[in-house]
């Protein structure tokens, strides 16, 4: 049974990435398809990274956009004059990630001394600090004028492809790390942190270490995505690179798909980003999109607080139990499980 489930997982992943790899080859010249997909995959990668901290560890960081901006500015500053053949910005991405992860460590260490609400406060403050710095640290960031990346010397007909495939690779890395977390002790430790940190500490889980690992890895991934984004759009302005909406995007998509699941953030991104592009296309870029975004967010919080995937797997499990004629036991078990959110969130939903 377990082997079967694992095989289904592999097949799902192969089909998913296989289709995404083939799409640009098929659609070819139609620019908007790859363009929309690049942003969709970008948010899928961002949400998957956020999920490491916000989903598995249960620390709702609102400051991840600061690290997105950090990555974006790093690439923009290094490659302001020339991109040296076009592929070097992609090659230095791991260095950007390491740099961002190192910077995130002290921040995480301070922020993760606090829990839930106050953690959110601290991280949102980090976002504001980053924004203030980006606007005012003129000599480095160029202030409100922003920074530009030298244009990439790619062939016009396949200009989007390198960005597309690098984004896709980043998504694969983020999901791979996510999977690795689930399979190893780190994920288990994070689950205990999420459920009851004091008790976890009491039984000898190295809570600070695993929290910081998750935070640093997550921030490093986000910074890499930010770097590719900066190279792709070509201009880095403080209000777009360090944007609360990017944070909200990650949180929203993870919540919609299902926190603490492997595919949830990806599903969330593949629903919301195309929808968003569609709204922007029909309503134009008026301020109403902000309101629409907030409205979608509220609807998800109120009606699907646990996300699509956990809700579906819940329903499936109930149906299967009913088919086995043990409905009564199952509902007992379900209520017992919902009384213990940790077991529920970590064990069952794949």
């Amino acid at each position: 049974m377990k082997a079967l489930l694992a095989r289904i997982g592999v097949v799902r992943a192969v089909v998913f990435f296989g289709v995404l790899i083939v799409i640009p080859l098929v659609t070819g010249q139609i620019g908007w398809v790859t363009n929309t997909l690049i942003f969709t995959i970008m948010y899928a990668a961002l949400a998957s990274s956020w999920n490491l901290v916000g989903g598995y560890a249960g620390y709702p960081s609102l400051g991840h956009a600061a690290f997105f901006g950090l990555g974006a500015y790093s690439i923009a500053i290094i490659f302001n004059g020339s991109v040296y053949g076009g592929y070097l910005p992609f090659v230095v991405l791991p260095l950007v990630a390491i740099g961002a992860a190192l910077i995130s460590l002290p921040i995480g260490w301070v922020a993760m001394r606090t829990r839930a609400d106050v953690f959110a406060i601290v991280t949102i403050t980090v976002l504001f600090i980053a924004q203030t710095l980006a606007f005012n640290f003129n000599t480095v960031t160029g202030g409100a004028q922003g920074k530009s990346v030298a244009p990439a010397p790619f062939d016009v007909s396949t200009y989007n492809w390198p960005f597309y495939y690098v984004m896709l690779a980043l998504l694969a890395v983020a999901m791979g790390i996510s999977l690795y977390f689930r399979k190893t002790k780190i994920g288990l430790s994070l689950a205990t942190v999420r459920a009851d940190e004091e008790k976890a500490h009491g039984v000898g889980v190295r809570v600070t270490a695993v929290k910081l690992i998750a935070f640093a890895v997550s921030c490093g991934l986000v910074a890499m995505v930010g770097g590719v984004w900066a190279y792709y759009v070509g201009f880095v302005y403080p209000q777009f690179a360090v944007d609360p909406l990017i944070t909200i995007g990650m949180v929203l998509m993870t919540f919609l798909g299902g926190r603490g699941t492997l595919w949830g953030p990806v599903l969330g991104a593949f629903i919301l980003v195309p929808a968003q592009e569609f709204f922007a296309f029909t309503f134009g870029a008026s301020e109403l999109y902000l309101f629409a975004y907030a409205a979608v967010f509220l609807v998800i919080m109120l009606f699907l607080p646990r996300g699509i995937l956990p809700s579906i797997s819940d329903r499936l499990r109930k149906k299967r139990a009913a088919a086995n004629g043990i409905l009564r036991d199952a509902s007992d078990a379900a209520s017992a499980v919902s009384a213990q959110p940790a077991a529920h969130q970590t064990g069952v939903t794949r």
């Binding site: 249960g58 709702p60 839930a116 959110a120 909200i248 949180v251 907030a294 967010f297 509220l298």
Partner: peptide
Amino acid sequence: HSDDVAQLSLLVTFALELG
């Protein structure tokens, strides 16, 4: 009504702010 009302409420007020 959920396992982590605190987290959800916080995010709801964030959404409210943006709205």
